[in-house]
Design a protein around this nucleic acid. Structure first.
Ligand SMILES: [Mn+2]
Ligand SMILES: [Mn+2]
Ligand SMILES: [Zn+2]
Ligand SMILES: [Zn+2]
Lengths: 139, 139
DNA sequence: ATAGGAATGAGAAGCTTTTTCATCTGATCG
DNA sequence: CGATCAGATGAAAAAGCTTCTCATTCCTAT
């Protein structure tokens, strides 16, 4: 079903691209992956796909708007399949849990701030860091 | 005047640390510096201070709460002297200009969202990206 | 001034990400 | 279906940014 998305993006339908899409779609528990995360899952699945290809493909997917790239504080890029509406993230600094939220008040204020500052807004990123419920109860 | 701040932070008052503080304080035009930025200014000033020391000192300053570290999309860390109240940033994706703003509505909503999600909030980061007035008029 | 611990500079090394290049694959067309 | 060829891939090298190592130097407290 996704080969269409790839073709639409001007990308050949290749085995590495399909496998990487599959991993991003599985998302039973995880929805946010580093390149390394994806690479490890490929290895576990017995696929012989190089890390360079993972990076290349994820970047192409980003360009094609199939995935979003996030810059969590960890320093490296984190990717997420681009489905559903825009949302921001709240992360646990202890265990790395990632939750998502949407807040129209904040979205509106951001647009207003950009306008008042004379900027034509292209993007924004908002991360809330904290300690999740589970980690709090472990203290 | 700042040797006190260093001592208070349990840091010896050394020449590299004083020089780096001076650069961060100058801030005639720039308030946000990468380690490389600071290093270049040291070179221009004829100081013989290694890049490793710049990184070390900036990290110590961060720990001592003398500076804040930001993660703009550029990928590398950006430092800013920690004076004045908390603020967030709006950046031009064309020319790199950085403006600052404070918005109590957003601050409050963030706290509410953290609470509703069961998180004890420790920090947050908000960056708005866009095209500044000057760059828009060049289009 | 002296001594001892902390700080520094230079370079090596670490990590994530990108690039290079020879080889391979998949879309197209006969 | 097989040949063709641009595009994609894997492996390894390299690029950025940042941290670490270690011999040497510098502060601070006597
Ligand atoms: Mn998400
Ligand atoms: Mn600032
Ligand atoms: Zn947690
Ligand atoms: Zn601009």
């Amino acid at each position: 079903m996704e080969s269409k998305d790839l073709r639409k993006a001007g990308l050949k339908v290749t085995l590495p691209r399909m496998k990487i899409l599959e991993i991003l779609e599985a998302a039973d528990d995880q929805r946010h992956f580093s390149a390394e995360d994806v690479y490890k899952q490929l290895l576990e699945a017995g696929e012989d796909i190089g890390l360079a290809t993972v990076y290349r493909v994820l970047t192409q997917f980003e360009t094609a708007d199939l995935v979003m790239r996030h810059h969590f504080e960890s320093g490296h890029s984190v990717f997420e399949l681009n489905r559903g509406p825009h949302h921001d993230h709240i992360l646990c600094v202890r265990c790395g849990k990632v939750d998502e939220f949407v807040d129209e008040t904040i979205e509106r204020r951001q647009r207003e701030i950009a306008e008042n500052s004379g900027y034509r807004m292209t993007d924004h990123s908002l991360y809330i860091y904290g300690i999740c419920e589970a980690c709090q109860s472990k203290e």
